[in-house]
């Protein structure tokens, strides 16, 4: 128990680089725009509520992307998406789907983190103020505990996704096969020897990988292997099933597991002389 409490203390009271939070903010804003922009236009704003959601979204998401009043913009974006999902979700737009929930949780966590202290207009203005007053540049540091909540949420997605698949229908490969029939092969599965065994192996492999991702992404050594495996897994899902932004979102959220100062140093190394 003591090591866990010590780890929690390190995570919750720690001030660290805000660059990962900024990268998450930019990525989440881009994904949010890709996912919702086409549905939030004057064409679709047929009543006052829709107009309010549209206004909140178009004020929040672009400001979140460029980092203008970053935390407030992130909060406004989250509110607009939650309001839209609560009242305007339909079978067609899929606004109540899992990926929208995950997206909102991540945006809320980013809104709690000082995500404007790096890579943002907020940062630009802070540097200009410091230059004018002759003060040193403000540090790109802050409390990053909410960033770890994103990682907790993604762990829950993998963990409960894997537990849900621990049933005979999935583990025998039948459920995966039914989904591939539905989206790719129609009623004629490929005439391949061992097709059924391949489906079973892929299904069991999926559960094993999800469990590995749920636990292993918390450990630095395992991340080296699990992040590429997870990215490949999500690309495979994307090209096989209609998951919209879920794949890109999950891959982006891997950033939340990485030590913020490590990310900071990596960016320094990439951009340095």
């Amino acid at each position: 128990m003591r090591p866990l409490i010590a780890a929690l203390e390190r995570a919750l009271d720690r001030e660290a680089s805000t660059r990962p939070a900024a990268l998450l903010r930019i990525g989440l804003a881009a994904i949010t725009l890709v996912r919702f922009a086409e549905h939030l236009t004057f064409r679709d704003s047929t009543d006052l509520f829709r107009l309010a959601v549209m206004a909140g979204f178009w004020l929040g998401a672009p400001a979140m992307l460029v980092g203008w009043r970053s935390q407030a913009a992130s909060a406004l974006t989250a509110i607009a998406v939650v309001a839209g999902a609560a009242r305007l979700a339909t079978e067609q737009n899929g606004w109540n789907h899992h990926h929208v929930y995950l997206l909102v949780v991540a945006i809320v966590c980013v809104a709690i983190t000082p995500c404007g202290r790096s890579c943002s207009i907020d940062r630009w203005r802070a540097l200009a103020r410091a230059e004018r007053s002759g003060a040193p540049p403000p540090p790109e540091r802050g409390l990053v505990w909410a960033q770890y909540l994103i990682a907790v949420q993604l762990t829950a997605v993998y963990l409960w996704g894997a537990i849900d698949k621990c049933n005979p229908g999935w583990l025998h490969g039948d459920k995966l096969q039914a989904q591939l029939l539905f989206y790719i092969f129609d009623s004629d599965p490929p005439d391949l020897p061992g097709w059924g065994a391949l489906m079973a192996a892929l299904s069991i492999g999926t559960v094993a990988l999800e469990l590995a991702l749920a636990v292993g992404l918390w450990f630095r050594r395992a991340r080296r292997w699990l992040i590429p495996a997870g990215v490949a897994f999500h690309i495979t899902i994307y090209v096989s099933l209609p998951v919209t932004v879920f794949s890109a979102l999950s891959c982006l959220l891997y950033l939340a597991y990485v030590d913020p100062d490590e990310v900071h140093r990596a960016i320094d190394r990439l951009t340095g002389p």
């Binding site: 409960w160 849900d164 039914a178 989904q179 029939l181 539905f182 009623s187 599965p189």
Partner: peptide, 15 residues
Amino acid sequence: RAWQMFHLRGAGICS
């Protein structure tokens, strides 16, 4: 949010 994904997908089609 129970993370039971794609439960309804794949129903309604036969191999």
